[in-house]
């Protein structure tokens, strides 16, 4: 089984028509230059694609430039090189129907707006009644209708992240990007939020890209897991998770297959980490490595 899933797989793209590709990144690279003149490469060379309605998780060791990658993928940050297209068009700024849930809810929800107005933030083009209806629908999805007039900072962390998810869902996006959305909440809340995210994504047919350092979370939620190397990151492998939906946390995590996926991804990350010291700028040559840009 590990043999079957190791390495780069493109089953989904191979089976689905090319038109179903929603987001495509080719040879994305990004460096950061510091005031003292040194240049830190954050993303080495990343190619990935996401089909409509697909749930993809990106995992990698901490500090491998996952957040930078997400900011590039949604148009918040311009990559140094490479091409990025969304729905067939090149990405210059954040596309209309892309929503993002950030890691730090207390820095992404607006503290001067009530929960309702936060959720309505992206709906400015609609009439007031439509905005209200959409916001209430989105807040119902995350079970938060009872705190609608509160300020976000009056809520617990898990509740705030649900508000952020509602804000994203309310815009009826085609693509939802999530940057370690559950990293700052406690374990039990985390499981609830993961299950909620899975069902929202399935119900709405949302293409979802989840960035995480948590392998269990990635395998539990995703159709496909993209494993990144340490910084400057590149794609080590793509693993297609063949576990039927709907998935329930306890059942899935007890499956032998879940354990195999988990082990496989873990080994990929750990092996890569142990043979590349932190300070090295270019990754060691590796059979599974995609071709690097000159």
């Amino acid at each position: 089984m590990p043999e079957a899933i190791k390495g780069r797989q493109h089953d989904r793209q191979a089976t689905g028509p090319a038109a179903a590709t929603l987001l495509e990144a080719r040879n994305i690279a990004k460096c950061f230059s510091h005031p003292n003149g040194t240049v830190t490469p954050a993303i080495g060379d990343i190619a990935l694609s996401l089909a409509k309605g697909e749930f993809v998780a990106i995992v990698g060791p901490s500090g491998c430039g996952k957040t930078t990658l997400l900011r590039c993928l949604c148009g918040l940050l311009k990559p140094d090189s490479g091409t990025l297209s969304y729905a067939g068009k090149p990405v210059s700024d954040v596309p209309e129907d892309v929503a993002v849930v950030f890691q730090e809810y207390n820095r992404s929800l607006f503290p001067w707006l009530s929960v309702r107005r936060n959720v309505e933030f992206g709906l400015n083009k609609l009439s007031k009644t439509e905005r209200r209806a959409r916001a209430e629908e989105a807040l119902t999805r995350v079970h938060l209708t009872d705190v609608i007039e509160h300020y976000p900072w009056q809520l617990s962390g898990g509740m705030q992240q649900r508000v952020a998810i509602a804000r994203a869902v309310a815009t009826q996006p085609n693509l939802l990007l999530m940057d370690e959305p559950f990293a700052s909440v406690d374990a039990q809340t985390r499981i609830r939020l993961e299950t909620m995210t899975a069902s929202i994504s399935t119900e709405l047919g949302l293409a979802t890209l989840l960035i995480t350092h948590d392998i269990d979370e990635a395998v539990f939620l995703a159709d496909r897991v993209i494993v990144l190397s340490p910084r400057p990151s590149s794609v080590l492998a793509e693993v297609v998770v063949d576990i039927p939906r709907p998935r329930t946390e306890l059942e899935v995590k007890a499956m032998p297959r879940f354990q195999e996926y988990r082990r496989l991804i873990h080994d990929l990350i750990v092996a890569k980490q142990s043979d590349t010291p932190d300070v090295v700028d270019t990754p060691a040559p590796d059979g599974t490595e995609p071709e690097r840009s000159p």
Binding site: L76, V94, E104
Partner: peptide
């Protein structure tokens, strides 16, 4: 806070 700017860019399409 840069996070507010990021959020606003996402939800106003920049």
């Amino acid at each position: 806070e840069p996070g507010y700017i990021d959020s606003a860019r996402v939800y106003t399409s920049g």
